[in-house]
Amino acid sequence: MTEWVDIGALEDIPVRGARKLKTPIGCVGVFRTAANEVFALVDRCPHKGGPLSEGIVHGRAVTCPLHNWVIALDTGLAQGADEGSVPTVPVKLAAGRVLVDRGAVSLAQAAE
């Protein structure tokens, strides 16, 4: 069963930007695109663990602030020649509020 937790308003995230969400499995980056979509990724770049939520958001991708890998927000896959992926976290928008799936960020789940 998915349990959606309200983590804030869409307005709290800058357009073409991101905010961090602290969770039992570590930080999750919550991203907002120019088209007002939201995505959430575990906040660790597959390259050397850079905090993706600090990167520049363009289109549906973010460029890692440490060494410029480009990660797709919807799939978590590294783009171009780079190989790697980061887990995505289910997130949705409802009436201007941002909700994440509690199960996906709880420890029991992560241990499975």
Partner: peptide, 9 residues
């Protein structure tokens, strides 16, 4: 429709 950008599009 949906005019957001994305890697799958």
């Amino acid at each position: 429709g949906d005019f957001a950008e994305g890697e799958d599009r």
